[in-house]
């Protein structure tokens, strides 16, 4: 899966948890879940669980701690997928 596919999957996951539709439409690596997309922190847990299900990976606690923006999240998904493949 390349980065664009992962980003498209992530965007789909995030959609129900944000009302900032313009920011979501223009999502980039620099988009922040809290400050830009105004996602409620309780829903960050849902996003992490959705990512685990969709990408078939397990996200440990230290990784979850970093998942406040798109860039860190894409990196973690790619890294966990690589670990699975290896």
């Amino acid at each position: 899966m390349n980065k664009n596919d992962i980003l498209a999957g992530l965007k789909e996951i995030i959609t129900p948890y944000t009302e900032e539709k313009t920011a979501l439409e223009h999502i980039t690596e620099d988009t922040d879940f809290i400050t830009d997309l105004k996602i409620n922190s309780a829903n960050l847990v849902d996003i992490v669980l959705d990512i685990e299900e969709k990408f078939d990976i397990a996200i440990d606690n230290d990784s979850m701690a970093k998942m406040l923006n798109v860039k860190a999240t894409l990196e973690i998904i790619a890294q966990k997928q690589a670990e699975n493949a290896g």
Binding site: N40, A42, V45
Partner: peptide, 15 residues
Amino acid sequence: AKIQSNWQRKNYLSK
């Protein structure tokens, strides 16, 4: 919170 979050979802609490 009742509408927004379902803490009874599988694995939610352990996170």
